[in-house]
Design a protein around this nucleic acid. Sequence first.
DNA 1: TAGTGGTCTAGACCACTAA
DNA 2: TAGTGGTCTAGACCACTAG
Lengths: 235, 235
Amino acid sequence: MEITHYQRLYTQLKSQIQSGHYKEGDLLPSENELGSQHRIARMTVRRALTELANEGYIRKVKGKGSIVSATRKSLGLLSFKGFSEVVGAEHQVKTMTLRAPTVMAWPDRFFYALSQEEQQAGCVTLERVRFVNDEPIMIEYTYLPQMGLIDFCESPFVDGSLFKTLSLNYQTEITNIEQDIRAVTADEVTAFLLKVKPLTPLVQLYRRYHTSRPDYYVYSHLYCNTEQYTISNFQ
Amino acid sequence: MEITHYQRLYTQLKSQIQSGHYKEGDLLPSENELGSQHRIARMTVRRALTELANEGYIRKVKGKGSIVSATRKSLGLLSFKGFSEVVGAEHQVKTMTLRAPTVMAWPDRFFYALSQEEQQAGCVTLERVRFVNDEPIMIEYTYLPQMGLIDFCESPFVDGSLFKTLSLNYQTEITNIEQDIRAVTADEVTAFLLKVKPLTPLVQLYRRYHTSRPDYYVYSHLYCNTEQYTISNFQ
DNA sequence: TAGTGGTCTAGACCACTAA
DNA sequence: TAGTGGTCTAGACCACTAG
């Protein structure tokens, strides 16, 4: 058995909540109903619902049912999923590439200490602006050590996703994220790109992604406009 | 039935781990063994063990058993540990209490949707400023639903820590954190408290801590001055 | 091969909600 | 009173670990 019953039900209900098929305050079908619909035992249904409740998607009320919780208008940006995977489910997302992947020297005063190997390898840089519902929300500068990235600059990304490309073409899985968070005021360039007034407060993130390749990290540096959307994080 | 079987087993095992009867690396008795010792079904044992695993006290290994974990879950400021535990190791930390725990009504337009029960229960509020190396770095407004917090406002915190107090005196463990992050400019009061100029950009966090008590959440709202220190996060 | 945890079933009784 | 979620049982088969 590849995927388990409770996982399938959990995934299905979660996506139905995220897509708006079940809205805030709605009652899910009862445990017995879900069980007979999917031809699984009630205890198996309960396992899926318990997981959803632990993650805050629903709350269970004895004698009443499972109630869909408020969905937050927020971008789950602090997880280590790629941008499109995280935000795309609930919002329309576009990416504009300011600089396609380019081999360069590392910037001076890089925000993380680099190993000698990374220094010598050089880096691939790309710059992108992320749009949510046609508003520019985030500028991202990404830096990858130029180690084993054959044809990386020449071929387009798989599904437009950096992380999918690393996974499928370079067997490099993102396993972890380490990040530093600051509040800063927008400089002129950043304000122009995010279409905000200069001095607007932005969240600045320095990130180091850990990967399944030993000693291989992906770095990124980004600014987020949080006036309309917040950055959300759930551990 | 006042206390449930899985709760009793959970509590017993947890205290045996905390007291050192089971040490790091030890195997707990198997699920079948615990079941026959306590004359309860294996599924009931599993529920207690699953809870312990979720909270990081043990890890379960298929084919082997349940292994007692190291006691510390180390993480950065965005983790769900209390402030003193996280920052205190490397920096000198002090806390100034602006408002000691006080029973109040909930603020208008609270940042998370509250359940009816939480609304009716009222809340305990406290306000604290955190200092790192004698600089005010963070203002934290904490809100706890006034449910079962007997003598909470009358007694001091255990070791000065809210989370230790909740754990030891109220059997409430923090299990998870959900948070929204924004950049804002300091208003006058906040600027004064953090000793920064008005309009300085600050990181604003809205937090909802999940706990081991069903449907019991702790809320907090905080401002961080990130000019000197950043907020770090490692998943 | 014996023992372990992972998943699952088909029942059961209870306390609670809402009509 | 009918239906709901909370707890619990006594089985079952599986994949995995370790001797």
